[in-house]
Write a protein that binds this DNA or RNA. Structure first.
Lengths: 358, 358
DNA sequence: CGTCTTTGCTAAACTGTTTCAACAAGTGTG
DNA sequence: CACACTTGTTGAAACAGTTTAGCAAAGACG
C-alpha cells in the first residue's frame, strides 16, 4: 500500500520533455518499482496477468529506461570507443571510414553505441584512454591505425580493460586483434605483376613500425627473390601513407631506378599519388609504368586510370572486431586473433611490362 | 564520526581494476562524502586546509569520478551525437570526415564526448533520435547530410532537444544551423568560368531537396543570365553527389550539349567523376573541357589534373556547430544561423574556353 | 554575557535503475 | 493437519555521485 507517499520534489525541468520514470509507472500501476523492473527484464516470477498489464501501461506512458541509472546499477554502459590516430585527416580517411562503417553497423545491431576518440599525445599522457573506462564512459575500445610505437595499447591489458586492435597485429603483446591477410594480399599483387613480366618493381610503403606494412615489405622481397631479383636499396621508398608521400616516393623511384616498369604501393592513397606523379612526369600508366595499390577504397575505381589493387575486407574487419570485442566484454576468455582474406582486383593501371610486350 | 560503518558488500569485480569511489576517499580522509564532493567542485565553503589535504589524497588514491553517477545527478551527460545520413559510405566520405574532425576537436576541448549515429529508416521510425535524449545518452545532436525530406529534424524542436543542422539550412523550421556560404561560392565559381570565356557551362548538381544545392543551382542560372545565356534543360544534370553519378552526368552533358566547354559540379566527388568521364571520352581537361568542383576535399589536389574548386571551411563549420550546440545546451535562447565564407582555389582543371583561346 | 553572523562541515534526500532477501498466500505431500 | 515448497510481490540496499538544510563552534557586537 504505497507507504512511501512522501512528495517527490516537483521536477525543475524548464522546457525539457518531462520523462516518465519507473516510479511513475509503478505508482500508476499500484505495484512496486521492483515489479515493473522485473516485468521489463522478463523475470519469470511475475504473473502473466501483471506482466501484460504493466507492459501496456509502459507502452501507454511512453516509458524509456534511463540508461545512466541502468548502467550505474548494472556496471555495463553498452558503449564502446573507437580510437583513431591523431592524424589531421583521420576522420576524412576512406580507409578508417570503411572500418568504422562496419563497426557502427554491427554495434547498432548488438545494441551498442559508438564513441569517437582521437589518440592525441596529451590524451594519452593524461591516461585518458584508461580513464574512459574508470569513469565508466565505455565498456571496451577498438584501436585503429596503431603501430608498434603505440605502447599505450598495452595499458589496456594491464588495467583489465577490454580492447581490440583493428587491422593490425602486435608481436609482443597478447592483445586481441582482427586483421586482413596482408601477406597473402602482397603475394597476390606481386604474383600478378611478375606474371605480367615485371621484374623491376618499386615498392612504396610506409612506417616500418607497422607490422602489416612489414609483412608487405617482406613478401615483396620474398616474391622478387623467387624470380631471382635482388631489389636495390632505392627500390623501396617511404610514402607515409599519403597521396603526397606516394607522389614523392614515385618521383624518387623514377629518378633512381632506371628501367622501372611497375610500382606496388602499400595503400591506395599512395598508389594514387604515385600514378599522379608518373603522369606528371610525362609517362603513361599503365603503358610505361604499371601501378598496383592496396585497400580497394571505393575511390580506386574512379581515378584515371582506374586502379588495380588488393581488396581488403575493411567493413568486415570492423564488424568482426566489434563482435569479438563484445564477446570479450561479456567475459570471453580465449584470445582473439582473426585473419580475414584479401583478393586482387584488376583494373586499368596495370599492363604487360614493356620489355615483354614490345 | 562515521556512524554509517555498515559493511559495504565486497565488490564482486573479477579481473577489473578496482576503482576508488568518493566514499573511499571520504573514509580515508575521515570526512563526509559531501565534503570531498565539495572540494572537487570547488565549493568555497570548505577550508583551505581541508581542501588541500583532500586534493592530495584524491591525487594519491587516483580517484576518478564515475560519470554515470555524475550525469544521473546533474542531468548533463556531456555527450553529443553526430547524426550521419544512412548512406553506405557515409563514414568513408571525406566531406563528412572533415566536418566530424572539426566537431571532435572542439568537443574534446570543451570536455564533451562524441557519439556516432546513423539516421537509418528503422532508427527514425522507432523515434530513436528522440530516445537518445529521453534515455539520457546525449545532451545534444548535430545533424549532418540532411535534406528537406528529413522531417525528423523537426522532432528535436518539438521535444525540446538541443539540435543543430550542420552545413545545411531548413526553410520552414526554426532549427539552428551553421552553414557554408554556398551562394557566394557558386558565384565565385561561375564568375571565374565566365571570366575564362566560358558560356556553355553545364551544371552537375544533386537532390533538389537540399537547400544548399538549390542555392547553387539558382546562382548558376542567375550568373548565366547576367551574361545573356539561357541554359537549356539538358545543361543541368543530377549527379547524386557520387563519382559514378558525376561520370554519368558528364556523359549526358557531352552528349546533349554540343559545344559545351565547362562543367561546374556541386561537389568534388562529382567533379572528379566528371573529369574521369571526359578523359575516358578522349577529350582533354582543361584544354577541351574545364571542370570546377565544390568542397575542396584534400583529395582534389591529387587527381589528374588537379581540381579547381570552391573551398568550404568544413572543419570550421563542424567546430562552430559544436560550440554553438553547447551554448544551446547551456540555455542559450537566441537562434543560431551562422554562415561561413568560402573561396575559389584555382588548380589545373580549368583553362580559357576554346573559342576564345584559339 | 547573550545574541547574531560567519565558517566548516555533516546528514540526508535525490537522481533511476537492478537485485536480493523476505514474506504472504496458495498448493502439494506425508 | 502440519510441513515444505512454489508463486507473486515488496522493501530496502546498492550503484556513485550532487545538493540542500542545518548543526556546531568561533568570532563580532551591543
Amino acid at each position: 500500500m504505497l507507504t512511501d507517499l512522501k512528495q517527490r520534489r516537483v521536477r525543475a525541468n524548464p522546457g525539457r520533455a518531462s520523462v516518465v520514470s519507473l516510479r511513475d509507472v509503478a505508482k500508476e500501476a499500484k505495484v512496486s518499482v521492483a515489479t515493473v523492473s522485473m516485468v521489463l527484464n522478463g523475470n519469470s516470477r511475475i504473473s502473466r496477468a501483471t506482466a501484460l498489464r504493466i507492459q501496456r501501461l509502459v507502452e501507454r506512458m511512453g516509458y524509456q529506461p534511463n540508461r545512466l541509472a541502468q548502467s550505474l546499477s548494472s556496471r555495463y554502459t553498452n558503449v564502446v570507443a573507437v580510437m583513431l590516430p591523431a592524424l589531421r585527416h583521420a576522420f576524412a580517411d576512406a580507409y578508417f571510414g570503411e572500418v568504422i562503417s562496419g563497426i557502427c553497423d554491427k554495434a547498432g545491431k548488438m545494441g551498442y553505441k559508438v564513441m569517437l576518440e582521437q589518440a592525441k599525445p596529451e590524451f594519452l599522457k593524461e591516461k585518458q584512454h584508461i580513464r574512459i573506462f574508470e569513469r565508466r564512459y565505455v565498456d571496451g575500445v577498438l584501436c585503429l591505425g596503431t603501430n608498434d610505437r603505440h605502447r599505450w595499447v598495452e595499458d589496456f591489458g594491464a588495467a583489465g580493460c577490454p580492447a581490440m586492435v583493428v587491422d593490425n597485429h602486435f608481436d609482443h603483446t597478447r592483445i586481441d586483434h582482427v586483421v586482413c591477410d596482408y601477406r597473402s594480399g602482397a603475394e597476390q599483387a606481386m604474383n600478378y605483376l611478375i606474371q605480367l613480366g615485371h621484374q623491376k618493381i618499386g615498392l612504396i610503403t610506409a612506417a616500418p613500425e607497422i607490422k602489416t606494412a612489414r609483412s608487405v615489405r617482406e613478401t615483396y622481397r620474398a616474391k622478387l627473390a623467387e624470380v631471382g631479383v635482388e631489389p636495390g636499396d632505392d627500390w623501396v621508398v617511404d610514402g607515409e601513407f599519403t597521396e603526397e608521400g606516394g607522389a614523392d616516393a614515385a618521383r624518387s623511384l623514377m629518378d633512381k631506378v632506371p628501367g622501372l616498369t611497375a610500382i606496388f604501393a602499400g595503400n591506395d592513397k599512395m598508389a594514387i599519388g604515385a600514378m599522379h606523379q608518373v603522369l606528371t612526369l610525362g609517362l603513361r600508366v599503365p603503358q610505361d609504368v604499371s601501378v598496383v595499390g592496396f585497400d580497394d577504397l571505393q575511390h580506386a575505381a574512379f581515378v584515371n586510370p582506374t586502379l588495380t589493387t588488393i581488396h581488403l575486407p575493411l567493413y568486415e574487419v570492423g564488424a568482426m572486431a566489434m563482435e569479438r570485442l563484445i564477446e570479450r566484454i561479456h567475459g570471453r576468455a580465449e584470445p582473439v586473433h582473426e585473419v580475414l582474406p584479401t583478393h586482387l582486383v584488376v583494373r586499368n593501371s596495370t599492363a604487360m611490362a614493356k620489355s615483354v610486350s614490345s
